[in-house]
Design a protein around this nucleic acid. Structure first.
Lengths: 347, 347
DNA sequence: CGAATAATTTAGATCGATCCAAAATGCAAG
DNA sequence: CTTGCATTTTGGATCGATCTAAATTATTCG
């Protein structure tokens, strides 16, 4: 196998036309006669021609590649985000370079550089923890469109698409208060991130609004993972005055909290109210189904991709900062008996 | 911003040398004098030069891109697989094109074609359901290295890396029998897939080995998801003679089965033994921790990537069919009290 | 039928790097 | 101060497509 590459010249020869004509056909130009177009297409099929996008890009100096870099692909939130991006991007005729940084900003620098070398025409980035404006500076200076998702970086000078973490957290806590809870914990997440900060502020503001004190020992950070949730709830249950409900940093933490409760023979939902954040797919089917603030990761990926494509098409666009509305989906884990009751929040 | 592209010629001019010399420096050639190398590197930094890999690829007719196409990225098994591939591939200086087919073979055809046009130098494919040899034929005919993972396709003429599904299922069922279970179900998965077939065969063979009858009504297919697991266990518990244990098609199904059991006030582990398949990260931290046949998705991704890279380097390699060993990790969900007892199976 | 106009087709330069063969330079020995 | 050999550097062709401007062919019409 592995025979010589078939090029436009080969198929031009086979079809008895010039390579220019072949190029026209490849681009679906209307300038070319039906009969010749048919001849050329026949030759293309005959010789098993494969278009060389790299060569075309070189001449046109633009590509149909977009890059997406995520901080943790093993977290299904980000996997779903990537799926959303992929769907939009593919149907626009682009392909995506996907890289996982695993929260390491060194690797993030490398992969962004690598993507630039490959000539991506736009980049969607969910920044690694601790990413600074200076990490992104050379990229934004180059003028290629960038959309930040999930985590914003102040003054980076690029578009961003984040969810309304503050409003979501407030709505969740209000709901818990309405149900009669008076000792509510905020569990999980790394305290030095903007997302944590926003959700925690929502938590605090809702308590203040209800005239309830914010007890510091009820805010317990941890890794934003299932395992982190287990340790956070364990710590919470060691307190003299235990909480009766918790808003969790994200769904993974919430699942861990449920696990940890069961390990102490407490039934999530019945004995202790748990609310998550993100609404990953498993949230709906878990038992008990998880009450959570729905961020719709896949939809967010789609919107990020659309925003990026818009900017790519427009050439030069003003950076937009979009805050995506969020809604509380009440399921069983917060003691609700009402399935599928949905509260619209917004912004 | 968005100024003119800086090319080798520009930096050659700035450094007062020829573009050939610059090219040599870029490739880290030892032919070039230390002093000039320094001058060139200075100019590169000064002008903010970005290497154009596309142009280089054109001349060298080889790229540092590998493609990975997965059938369902929202399944964390495949997300982890992709992470494993990414890790190896990145440290070998490659980047990965990742595409999600969502089990649609039409989309699979498109993305494979697109990747070929972009000149990937190798492809790792976890085929969509119902992929035929003919779907892959043009690809393998082109001679570019391909590694099939997770699902093999007979006679495709390419390398494959699958887990030892048969041995894994047998070990799991043997374990359940040792614990005294006599009515064991096989739950979840689409019956028309090779993976299902292999795992089910292992299930049957272990029963036969123990002289136990294989009861058809105890084999219940479903979607290979958490939701599918819920419906499968519900169906199983409707039988007159209920099972006391189940081997599940994969971990997602197993989690669903646990959910379904709880919904009936049965505690997985204590009241009913559940064994999964794959060993996704959550298996360890779930409560009860899931006994499962460990496939190590991330490790599998790494090995697939290594195999592919080997073939790319070798130019032309014989297709290998690797069956990756698998081990039963006994945790709590099968009623075990022994934590972290590990049985090595193999093949 | 020939000029004018419209519809097709094409030669050759070009994108940004690599590679080859050949030229330029440095250095040691005679 | 050459000659000979090793070390560096370089011009120009090349990869496979696109693009421009111009050439060719077809069609219309007075």
């Amino acid at each position: 196998m592995a025979r010589e590459r078939v090029t436009v010249v080969d198929i031009a020869r086979a079809a008895g036309v010039s390579k220019s004509t072949v190029s026209l056909v490849l681009q679906g130009s209307s300038l070319v006669n039906e009969a010749t177009r048919a001849k050329v297409n026949a030759a293309i099929r005959e010789l098993g021609y494969v278009y060389n996008r790299g060569a075309a890009n070189l001449r046109q100096s633009k590509s149909k590649i977009i890059g997406i870099v995520v901080n943790d692909l093993t977290n299904s939130f980000f996997a779903e985000l990537a799926v959303g991006v992929d769907a939009v991007v593919q149907s626009a005729g682009f392909v995506q370079f996907l890289a996982n940084t695993g929260e390491k900003s060194e690797r993030q620098r490398e992969v962004i550089a690598s993507m630039r070398e490959h000539g991506v025409s736009g980049l969607i980035i969910s920044p690694a923890r601790g990413t600074e404006v200076s990490d992104l500076a050379p990229l934004v200076a180059s003028g290629i469109p960038v959309v930040l998702v999930v985590r914003d970086i102040a003054d980076a000078g690029v578009s961003s698409l984040i969810s309304d973490n503050h409003a979501g957290a407030m709505a969740a806590v209000r709901h818990l208060i309405e149900r009669g809870h008076r000792r509510i914990a905020f569990l999980g997440g790394f305290p030095d991130t903007a997302v944590f900060e926003a959700r925690m502020r929502g938590f605090r503001d809702a308590l203040r609004e209800a005239g309830m004190p914010a007890v510091d020992e009820l805010v317990i950070g941890s890794a934003p993972s299932r395992a982190g949730g287990v340790t956070a709830i364990e710590q919470a249950m060691m307190l003299k005055e235990r909480p009766t409900a918790a808003l969790c940093f994200n769904d993974a933490v919430a699942f861990g909290v449920c696990d940890g409760l069961r390990a102490r023979r407490l039934e999530p939902g019945a004995d202790f109210a748990v609310i998550g954040f993100d609404d990953v797919i498993e949230a709906k089917t878990a038992v008990p189904a998880l009450t959570t603030v729905s961020v719709d990761p896949q939809g967010m990926g789609e919107r990020a991709a659309e925003l990026l494509l818009k900017q790519i098409m427009a050439g030069r666009a003003e950076p937009e900062a979009i805050v995506s509305p969020v809604r509380l989906v009440v399921r069983q884990s917060c003691g609700g008996t009402v399935e599928r009751r949905v509260k619209e929040i917004s912004s």
